[in-house]
């Protein structure tokens, strides 16, 4: 009991900040990637739809799909950058 109290007494503000940093980085990646993942899935699904309907348009559709996914992915990348900033800069 005393030991536990000692450990609690040893926790400083910096430790709490570090813990919060890692926690925040984890949450940022976990929550931030949901949206972009769903969005990319929708883009791929609709592109596949279009390809199945018009196979001769495959090249143009693939290019547009990759472009759309890249743009959709930016939010996920932003969360990744924020996580990196949290982990290595803050």
């Amino acid at each position: 009991m005393e030991e536990a109290q000692n450990i609690v007494g040893q926790i400083s503000g910096a430790d709490i900040a570090t813990a919060a940093k890692y926690l925040a980085a984890g949450f940022v990646m976990a929550i931030g990637s949901i949206g972009s993942a769903i969005g990319e899935g929708i883009v791929a699904a609709h592109a596949l739809d279009g390809m199945a309907r018009q196979p001769e348009m495959e090249g143009a559709l693939l290019r547009t799909m990759v472009l759309g996914q890249a743009i959709t992915e930016s939010t996920g990348i932003y969360s990744l950058v924020v996580a990196i900033v949290l982990l290595f800069v803050v």
Partner: peptide, 11 residues
């Protein structure tokens, strides 16, 4: 967004 996308992916 252009630069951070590439940077984030590679890094």
């Amino acid at each position: 967004s252009h630069s951070f996308r590439l940077f984030g992916n590679t890094f």
